[in-house]
Simulated assay, not measured.
Amino acid sequence: MAGSKFAYVRNFELPDPLLPEAFMVLRIDGHAFHRLSEEHNFVKPNDERALQLMDHAARDVMNEFKDIILAFGESDEYSFLFRRSASLYNRREAKILTTITSLFTSSYVFNWSKYLSDTPLKYCPSFDGRIVLYPTATVVRDYLSWRQADTHINNLYNTVFWALVLKGGQTTTEAHATLRGTVSSQKHEMLYSRFGINYNELPARFRKGSVLVREEVSDTTEARSGPETDKAAASDPGEPVPTSGKKAQKKKPRVRTTVELYHCDIIGDEFWDCRQNLLADS
Score class of each variant (00 low, 15 high):
residue 2 A to D: 08
residue 2 A to W: 01
residue 4 S to D: 13
residue 6 F to C: 03
residue 9 V to G: 02
residue 16 D to Q: 09
residue 17 P to W: 03
residue 23 F to T: 03
residue 30 G to A: 03
residue 32 A to G: 07
residue 33 F to T: 08
residue 39 E to P: 00
residue 40 H to W: 11
residue 41 N to R: 14
residue 49 R to L: 09
residue 49 R to K: 15
residue 51 L to W: 05
residue 52 Q to M: 12
residue 53 L to H: 06
residue 54 M to Q: 05
residue 57 A to P: 02
residue 57 A to L: 07
residue 63 N to W: 07
residue 70 L to E: 01
residue 71 A to K: 01
residue 76 D to K: 08
residue 77 E to D: 08
residue 80 F to C: 04
residue 81 L to I: 07
residue 82 F to L: 07
residue 83 R to L: 02
residue 85 S to K: 14
residue 87 S to F: 02
residue 91 R to F: 09
residue 102 S to Q: 10
residue 108 Y to K: 01
residue 108 Y to L: 03
residue 109 V to R: 00
residue 110 F to Q: 13
residue 113 S to G: 00
residue 115 Y to V: 06
residue 117 S to C: 06
residue 117 S to K: 14
residue 118 D to E: 15
residue 119 T to W: 00
residue 120 P to V: 10
residue 126 S to C: 04
residue 129 G to A: 15
residue 131 I to D: 03
residue 132 V to Y: 02
residue 133 L to D: 06
residue 135 P to R: 13
residue 136 T to H: 11
residue 137 A to Q: 12
residue 142 D to L: 04
residue 144 L to P: 01
residue 147 R to K: 13
residue 149 A to K: 11
residue 149 A to G: 12
residue 150 D to W: 05
residue 164 L to E: 14
residue 165 V to R: 07
residue 165 V to M: 10
residue 171 T to N: 09
residue 174 E to H: 03
residue 184 S to K: 14
residue 189 E to S: 13
residue 189 E to W: 05
residue 193 S to W: 00
residue 193 S to C: 06
residue 194 R to Y: 05
residue 196 G to E: 10
residue 197 I to P: 01
residue 199 Y to W: 15
residue 200 N to R: 06
residue 200 N to D: 14
residue 203 P to Q: 08
residue 210 S to R: 01
residue 212 L to G: 02
residue 212 L to Y: 03
residue 215 E to L: 09
residue 215 E to F: 04
residue 215 E to P: 00
residue 217 V to H: 06
residue 219 D to H: 07
residue 219 D to E: 14
residue 220 T to P: 00
residue 221 T to C: 03
residue 222 E to F: 11
residue 223 A to Q: 06
residue 224 R to E: 15
residue 225 S to T: 13
residue 228 E to R: 12
residue 230 D to M: 15
residue 232 A to S: 13
residue 234 A to R: 15
residue 235 S to L: 13
residue 236 D to Q: 07
residue 237 P to I: 03
residue 237 P to E: 07
residue 239 E to T: 10
residue 241 V to A: 10
residue 246 K to Y: 08
residue 253 P to V: 14
residue 254 R to F: 09
residue 256 R to M: 09
residue 257 T to E: 09
residue 259 V to I: 15
residue 267 I to L: 10
residue 275 R to Y: 06
residue 278 L to M: 10
residue 278 L to F: 08
residue 282 S to W: 12
